[in-house]
Design a binder for these strands. Structure first.
Length: 567
RNA sequence: UGGGGUGUAGCCAAGUGGUAAGGCACGGGACUUUGACUCCCGCACUCGUAGGUUCAAAUCCUGCCACCCCAGCCA
């Protein structure tokens, strides 16, 4: 069960032009680099982990850009390094992208399916004298690569005859040499200030079980060689990626040029997404999972798409968030609060409401006939009257939230306190007459009288009632557990270089409340299922932990700061 | 020290020589059968910085400063 509260249709029409769009518009203009062509992009994750909100930015940009220009976006597993990849990830990646609302049609590819062509292109480079088989060890390659200010020294194998390299390369593929003993290297520019151009490795020998090709290959192309080829073979016109690949663009272009590629894709880089109070790197997220600091990749505190989904985030809210933060080349960190804002906005408009109390206290209406019961029709969503109403039962004994009563009211408090009137939402106006405490001073029950003439919540004499509170009929209430989630880290920037993020896990990131009470109509609800109550978080049914007799709710967004600290 | 990038409000972000959009956050007010939502109002005499060109500069030129990325047989 997934919490989808809104149709998953990307609204890229509303997406304002960003610098990538401007570049594409120029490419498309008459005489431009790809005048007359259809825009074609791709989202190329390596299947070595779960997708997170940072990937959502790339997904929205890749799919959204293609859609904006009436083109297509492929989904491609960039699986050129078998050692860390797994089918578990290729499946979760597809599920999460679908959940976000994007469709790659029949254009699902594996980079590893192109290995035969990639091999042929490598042979072509060798024949042109642009690549050679090198027998230097990894250490030797590092030592001869030079430094920031000194050029690389040539490999002793750099001028090996093409025929010899071709033969060796074939034998590398045929498994004649051990892992790591040889590489295929491009012959480019040892003096370049860009390390990527100092004879980069194109192929390495690696015996590992590949999740897709199994043991068909024992040589694997490097990203820098494989990626431009993958893009060219698929007819990609614009290869969008993150900023750290800017230095790789000259090599990308070099490959495209020298293999005589069937297409000339253009790489454009944008800044990846940073959000405060969380970490985004797969390595760090993986460690949280493996050390049990969270319950899994889908722990509702995780910034993974499956975690956000379980927390109650809607696909529309995530898409809206990405579209609204914009696209630029500035390294930026967006406030987590903005993500929450986008969720609140969607939930407020589209989520069905129920009433519930987290910390139940018994409320007894002394003048309400014992044994009597009545029904109220309550709107499911005041923002959408067309979503109808539900029936909620009411009787003499109710549950209200402890926070909605103060025996000694604080200054400005306008909910229930002795002598004060408050409205039980859509039911009656009541006046508090006092409360009973046990020996330890805990409130056992609150007493009040109801105004029979106020059925529906309006006073017959027109008097104004300032406070309105939630309530649940004690006779029909359903028990539930509620989990309050907060930021995973208690500092703004757990990624800061001078801090160990594991030392800053927020100890209050998960607070579990048991014995909570929900109105009975929650039973009939399936996904989408998000609820707002208790001034004023949004909660949603946990799709994974819920059982028929033990509902579990996750709080989707924390309370607004302006409300924190108030009674 | 070499190469590649980026600097507009607390956080994102428009702006492309004609006098600083918008959103989040924040503050104030109105409304309210959720202290939510919604609605108003306020929030950069200034665009990293110092000069220069111009009638006019965030936009053009020069110098300086700050920050990010790069020396994997990772992507």
């Amino acid at each position: 069960m997934c919490a989808e509260s809104t149709p998953a249709t990307p609204e890229t029409e509303s997406m304002p032009n960003n610098f990538i769009h401007e570049m594409i518009i120029q490419d498309l203009a008459p005489g431009g680099r790809c005048a007359g062509q259809a825009v074609h992009t791709r989202f190329p994750p390596e299947p070595n982990g779960y997708l997170h909100i940072g990937h959502a930015k790339a997904i929205v940009i890749d799919f959204g850009t293609a859609e904006k220009f009436g083109g297509l976006c492929n989904l491609r597993m960039d699986d050129t390094n078998p050692s860390r990849e797994d089918v578990e990830y290729v499946e979760s990646i597809q599920e999460d992208i679908r959940w976000l609302g994007y469709d790659w049609g029949d254009r699902f590819f594996y980079a590893s399916d192109y290995f035969p062509q990639t091999y042929e292109y490598a042979c072509r480079l060798i024949k042109k004298g642009l690549a050679y088989v090198c027998e230097l060890t990894p250490d030797q390659i590092r030592e001869t690569r030079g430094t920031l200010t000194t050029p690389a020294t040539p490999s002793p194998f750099r001028d090996r005859p093409a025929e010899e390299s071709l033969d060796l390369f074939r034998r590398m593929k045929d498994g004649e040499f051990p892992d790591g003993s040889m590489t295929l290297r491009a012959k480019i520019d040892l003096n370049s200030g860009n390390f990527n151009m100092r004879d980069p490795v194109l192929y390495r020998i690696l015996r590992a079980n590949h999740h897709h090709t199994v043991a068909a290959w024992c040589i694997y192309p490097m990203y820098d060689f494989a990626h431009p080829i993958e893009d060219a073979l698929e007819g990609i016109t614009h290869s969008l990626c993150s900023l750290e690949f800017e230095d790789h663009r000259p090599l990308y272009d070099w490959v495209i040029e020298h293999i005589d590629a069937p297409a000339k894709p253009r790489q454009i880089e944008f800044a990846r997404l940073g959000i405060n109070h969380t970490v985004m790197s797969k390595r760090k997220l993986r460690l949280l999972v493996e050390t049990g600091r969270v319950s899994g990749w889908d722990d509702p505190r995780m910034p993974t798409l499956c975690g956000l989904r379980r927390r109650g985030y809607t696909p529309a809210s995530i898409r809206s968030f990405i579209e609204r933060i914009g696209v630029s080349k500035v390294n930026s960190t967006v406030d987590y609060g903005f993500l929450e804002h986008c969720l609140r906005e969607d939930l407020n408009a589209n989520a069905p409401r129920i009433m519930g109390v987290l910390e139940p206290v018994r409320l007894i209406l002394d003048n309400y006939p014992a044994g009597q019961s009545e029904q109220f029709e309550i709107e499911n969503n005041p923002e959408q009257p067309e979503t109808g109403t539900r029936t909620v039962s009411f009787s003499r004994e109710l549950w209200i939230d402890a926070g909605d009563f103060q025996e000694q009211p604080a200054k400005g408090y306008f909910r229930l306190y002795p002598g004060n009137e408050v409205r039980l939402k859509t039911a009656y106006i009541i006046r508090c007459t006092g409360c009973i405490r046990d020996a330890e001073g805990r409130i056992l029950e609150i007493h009040a009288d109801y105004d029979p003439a106020s059925r529906g919540g309006n006073a017959a004499d027109g008097r104004k009632i300032k406070g309105t509170i939630h309530w649940v009929d004690a006779q029909t209430a359903i028990d539930a557990e509620v989990r309050l989630y907060d930021n995973l880290f208690d500092i703004e920037d757990p990624d800061a270089a001078d801090c160990n993020y594991l030392d800053h896990l927020n100890p209050d990131s998960l607070v579990t409340m048991t014995g909570c009470k929900m109105e009975a109509s929650v039973r009939g609800l399936t996904a989408p299922a998000a609820f707002q109550f208790l001034r004023h978080g949004y909660f949603c049914l946990d799709a994974i932990d819920s059982k028929p007799d033990a509902l579990v709710f996750n709080r989707s967004v924390s309370l607004k700061d302006s409300y924190r600290g108030k009674a």
